[in-house]
């Protein structure tokens, strides 16, 4: 598992899924958390200054536990929305875990 910073105007691979966040400390913590939560997948980060894409191929998990760990404080996943203007893929949300995926 590796975190790749993609060249910012390179086309996206359609198989990628995951959140799009406004840049800032929460986005940085999400990158860390996503790499912990998806140990078998590479993480692709596209930084467009104002927003950042945090994606993995086919399926992307984000748990409340790893996000809290990287933020160093209490955090509820429902508050992720405050900094998440978009996401790529389908979504499934539970209080402890968000998941983005394509079924095919």
């Amino acid at each position: 598992m590796t975190v790749y910073e993609l060249d910012s105007d390179a086309p996206l691979d359609p198989v990628l899924v995951g959140p799009v966040l406004r840049s800032g400390p929460l986005a940085d913590a999400v990158i860390e958390a996503v790499s912990d939560d998806n140990p078998d997948r590479d993480v692709y980060v596209v930084d467009r200054d104002d927003y950042v894409r945090v994606h993995t191929p086919h399926e992307c998990r984000l748990t409340w536990r790893s996000l809290e760990e990287h933020l160093g404080g209490t955090f509820q996943l429902s508050a992720l929305e405050i900094e998440m203007p978009s996401f790529k893929g389908r979504m499934r949300s539970r209080s402890q875990e968000y998941m983005w995926f394509h079924s095919e």
């Binding site: 996206l12 359609p14 978009s86 790529k88 893929g89 389908r90 095919e104």
Partner: peptide
Amino acid sequence: LEWIVDQHERVLED
């Protein structure tokens, strides 16, 4: 291409 083709259309296909 980023938002409509790679992101939006891909989910519709699903």
